[in-house]
Amino acid sequence: MCSEGAFLCQHLPGDVTPGELERLLWVVVALALIADVVTTFVGLNLGLSESNPAARGAIEDHGLAGMLALKAFAVTVGLVCRPLLERPYRPIVPAGLAVPWLVAAALNTYMISAVV
């Protein structure tokens, strides 16, 4: 850890830069998004229900397109807010998108395994 003026700097393990970490996390966002959407629709086809009211409404009204629009909106909000952060802290944006979607995909997988 170092101090540059009023900001604290942290070096990541190894030679990973914040920019490289952010790029990696955007890949994780894409994979998490796909995992969440696929497991959601597999679960719905097995008779499970969507517990997120916003997603449930989007799916009921517009199906897969509604779900993808909801995800696209979330990614857009992240991309619009990203420049508001100092460069070293920008990886928090994709992490903030990926973590809930990974948790949702894991819960969906658990629920699917319970009914299969």
Rank of each mutant, 00 (worst) to 15 (best):
M1A: 09
C2R: 08
C2Q: 02
S3W: 13
S3P: 01
E4A: 14
G5E: 10
F7G: 00
F7E: 09
L8V: 14
L8K: 06
L8F: 11
C9S: 14
C9G: 10
C9P: 00
H11C: 08
L12H: 11
L12F: 10
P13A: 15
P13Y: 06
G14C: 07
V16Q: 04
V16L: 15
T17R: 13
E20C: 03
E20H: 06
E22T: 07
L24F: 15
L24C: 12
L24V: 13
L25E: 02
L25Y: 01
L25N: 03
V27P: 15
V27C: 07
V27S: 05
V27F: 12
V29D: 07
V29M: 02
L31K: 03
A32M: 07
A32K: 02
I34A: 14
V37K: 00
V38E: 11
T39C: 10
T39H: 02
V42K: 12
V42I: 10
G43F: 01
N45M: 09
N45R: 11
L46A: 04
L46Q: 12
L46S: 11
L48C: 03
E50D: 09
S51W: 13
S51D: 03
S51H: 15
N52S: 04
G57L: 14
G57Q: 11
A58W: 01
I59F: 09
E60S: 05
E60W: 05
D61T: 04
D61H: 14
D61F: 11
H62C: 06
L64P: 04
L64I: 14
G66C: 11
G66T: 04
L68H: 04
A69E: 13
L70M: 12
K71M: 08
K71G: 12
A72S: 07
F73K: 10
F73E: 13
A74T: 03
T76S: 09
R82A: 07
L84W: 09
L85F: 05
L85T: 13
L85V: 12
L85S: 14
E86R: 09
E86Y: 06
R87L: 11
P88F: 03
Y89C: 07
Y89G: 15
Y89W: 09
R90A: 15
R90W: 07
R90L: 08
R90V: 10
P91A: 09
I92K: 00
I92P: 00
I92F: 02
I92V: 15
A95T: 10
L97V: 08
A98H: 01
A98Y: 00
W101Y: 12
A104I: 06
A104W: 03
A105M: 02
N108R: 07
Y110Q: 08
Y110L: 03
M111T: 01
I112K: 12
S113H: 15
A114N: 10
A114G: 13
V115P: 00
V115R: 15
V115A: 02
V116C: 15
V116A: 13
